[in-house]
């Protein structure tokens, strides 16, 4: 008898192990839910980890107020179906309370402000572990991220002071006020995520599939035409068949021309595509090390 798991089942087993480890080792974990496919995968894996019990921690959505309506609709249905608690941290609220000042101008984005709203929500909920759907293949600053990533009392990530991780032993010890970010799908690639979602027939937000939308071009990227982005006079929207490769804040999530209207076609598209999925993210392009800098401050 040949006992072996294929790569997706092995990744699944590893992620379930990490998610259960969080439930066992922390008192008050929370799952950061962005509405994107990676956090959808996370919720799905958490469901598997505790079946037939419910997921024993709430979901936390950091709402920039600039959402694709389709993403919010999907989120609300998911929460209802699984019977989990949803908490929302609002960037608009942080702006209204004067915690942060909103950026102005053509490239204004609330992406950076998310960090403040996130840290505030984590503190308010007294969460000691925040599960996230980040993957190491996404961006170079993430390639060295741990499964259990320690954050100090300011929520900051110190790349030089991360704990070594060996075998499957995770050290979650911390002082009062500190917390952990935990990344159970660290070892998945974009293609793995899609293949798995396809094989498991997981329902996804319509945004990921090719649809007609008014878009305009900026710095070589296509952005969705919406009330949250100030357009330059030269930027004229036109209707195109597009789909999102990541789902985030509307102001910085690029869309890509595509005719892929099924998961199978998306996989085919990704397998042949030559641009990384974060290639369309305006927030990563600000400087060569922008992800690393944001992470140090406590970005997700």
């Amino acid at each position: 008898m040949d006992y072996h798991l294929n790569h997706l089942k092995e990744l699944e087993a590893e992620s379930i192990f990490v998610i259960r480890e969080v439930a066992a080792q922390f008192e008050n974990p929370v799952l950061m839910f962005s509405g994107g496919k990676d956090s959808i995968l996370m919720v799905y894996l958490a469901q598997k980890a505790f079946y037939p019990a419910r997921i024993p921690f709430p979901l936390l959505h950091i709402d920039t107020g600039h959402n694709f309506p389709e993403a919010i609709e999907y989120r609300d249905n998911l929460v209802k179906r699984l019977g989990v608690r949803l908490m929302v941290g609002s960037v608009q609220e942080a702006i209204d309370k004067g915690l942060v000042v909103e950026e102005k101008g053509y490239n204004a984005s609330r992406n950076g402000l998310q960090t403040v709203a996130l840290l505030e929500a984590l503190e308010k909920g007294k969460f000691d572990a925040a599960l996230g759907g980040a993957r190491r293949d996404e961006e170079k600053a993430r390639a060295k991220e741990r499964f259990f990533s320690h954050r100090d009392e300011f929520g900051q990530w110190n790349p030089k002071n991360q704990r070594p991780e060996l075998w499957n032993l995770f050290n979650s010890k911390k002082n009062f006020g500190e917390h952990f970010r935990v990344f159970p799908i660290s070892n998945w690639t974009e293609l793995d995520v899609w293949q798995y979602l396809a094989l498991e027939k997981v329902e996804l937000p319509s945004l990921y599939f090719a649809h007609k939308r008014m878009v305009f071009e900026r710095d070589g990227n296509l952005l969705a035409d919406c009330e949250f982005i100030q357009k330059r006079p030269t930027e004229v929207p036109k209707e195109m068949m597009v789909r999102c490769r990541t789902i985030g804040d509307m102001t910085c999530t690029g869309v890509a021309p595509s005719s892929a209207d099924t998961v199978e076609k998306i996989i085919q598209e990704i397998a042949t595509t030559r641009i990384t999925e974060r290639g369309g993210r305006a927030d990563d392009k600000r400087s060569e090390t922008s992800m690393e800098d944001r992470k140090k401050q406590g970005y997700f």
Binding site: H4, N6, H7, L8, Q195, A198, L199, E264, K265, Q268
Partner: peptide, 13 residues
């Protein structure tokens, strides 16, 4: 194409 994605079931890590 729809058969293609199931090829990945045989991949090892």
């Amino acid at each position: 194409m729809s058969d293609d994605i199931y090829k990945y079931e045989d991949m090892e890590l």
